[in-house]
Amino acid sequence: MRIALVKCSKWDADKDIVLLQNYLDSEGHKVSVPAWTDDISWQDFDRIYISSCWDYYLNIPAYKNWLKHLKGLAPKTLTFNAPDVILWNLHKELYLKELENRDVRIVPTQVITNAEEIESKLNSFYVAQSHYDDFVVKPSISASSYKTNSISSEKLISEAPAHICEILEDTPVLVQPLISDIRKNGEISLVFIDGEFCHAIVKTPQSGEFRCQSSFGGKAEHFQPSEELTETAKQILDKLPFEPPLYARIDGVETADGFLLMEVELNEPYLFLEHNPDTLKTLARCLVGSTNRS
């Protein structure tokens, strides 16, 4: 089988891709690692696995057009996750509210879509969430904490508008309280393959930082979730408006009041395959054997 494990042109292949490529090679498949921006004949592949297109947010229209092109290649060439699933997942401002309406507990979120509503929405959100010390302002479509800033509650009204206006040039804006439990206990990522839980990771920021990515000094470690937490994540997955996709990562934080969803990662999430060889084998088997999910 001819398989493309797709990355971005900006970086070399990450650990997930290297491990998956080596395993698929050992199983006799012909594996390539193109960038999503490469000018190649995508129809020449049997499977396209969207792994680490981590610069997509820099050219969102081109990325969406590429996904729509891949959709048109089915059923001969199957893409995972399915283009329609990824297109749904791109817009945090839409899917978080959709899941909240389906009784999923999310981190409190205010969506700002234009400059005219900044003052009124910031003021109302500040009043409703005034018990938090800090807030996070970020793009609704982004990756790797791009243009994501924290700001103290006393400066939210006076200083956040300038940053919000900058982000609005490209995408709607999310304003959320900074959940202090992240600094103490970390952000939990639960990985699902084909709808089944496989393993979990806890990502903790370095001292004085709120972002958990390794590029900001964060670290990731294997985490054993409780049965209750695993079931909560599975319930979130079951509330998606489509069948469980090939891969999914449920990101959130455990608080005294329970688990709060931060993101559902269905578009090029890092799956931390080095932490569980069984997940790698399950992913490879399902990728090769899956039919299209849309």
Rank of each mutant, 00 (worst) to 15 (best):
R2Q: 13
I3S: 02
A4C: 08
A4N: 04
A4S: 05
A4T: 09
L5K: 00
L5A: 02
V6L: 10
S9I: 07
K10G: 02
K10D: 02
D14T: 00
D14C: 12
D14A: 04
K15M: 14
L19V: 03
L20T: 08
N22A: 12
L24N: 06
D25M: 10
E27W: 15
G28L: 05
K30S: 14
W36C: 09
T37F: 07
W42I: 00
D44P: 08
D44S: 13
D46T: 10
I50A: 06
S52G: 09
W54M: 01
D55Y: 09
N59F: 00
I60T: 08
I60P: 05
P61Q: 08
Y63I: 00
W66D: 13
L67F: 04
K68W: 14
H69C: 03
H69R: 06
L70A: 11
K71N: 14
G72W: 12
P75W: 07
T77R: 01
L78S: 09
A82E: 15
P83R: 02
P83E: 10
V85H: 06
L94P: 11
Y95G: 02
R105K: 13
R105Y: 00
R105M: 07
I106F: 03
P108N: 06
Q110M: 09
V111P: 15
I112D: 11
E116A: 13
S120M: 12
K121E: 15
L122G: 10
F125Y: 11
Q129T: 15
Q129Y: 03
S130I: 13
H131Y: 13
Y132M: 00
V137A: 05
V137Q: 07
K138L: 14
K138D: 15
S142Q: 02
S144G: 07
S145M: 02
S145F: 10
S150D: 12
I151H: 07
E154F: 15
K155G: 03
L156D: 02
E159G: 01
A162M: 09
I164D: 05
E166G: 10
T171I: 01
T171Y: 01
V173G: 06
L174I: 15
I179V: 15
I179A: 01
R183V: 01
N185L: 12
L190K: 07
G195E: 04
G195M: 08
E196I: 14
E196N: 11
C198R: 04
Q206G: 11
Q206E: 14
C212V: 14
Q213M: 05
S214I: 11
G217C: 07
G218H: 10
P225A: 05
S226M: 10
T230H: 03
K234Q: 07
L237N: 06
K239Q: 14
K239T: 11
P241W: 10
A248D: 05
R249I: 12
R249G: 07
I250E: 05
I250N: 00
V253Y: 00
E254C: 12
T255P: 03
T255Y: 13
A256F: 05
G258Y: 00
G258P: 01
M262N: 09
E263S: 06
E268G: 12
E268T: 15
P269V: 14
P269G: 06
Y270M: 06
F272M: 15
F272E: 15
L273Q: 03
L273D: 08
H275G: 09
L280V: 03
K281P: 13
L283K: 04
C286G: 01
L287V: 03
V288Y: 12
V288P: 08
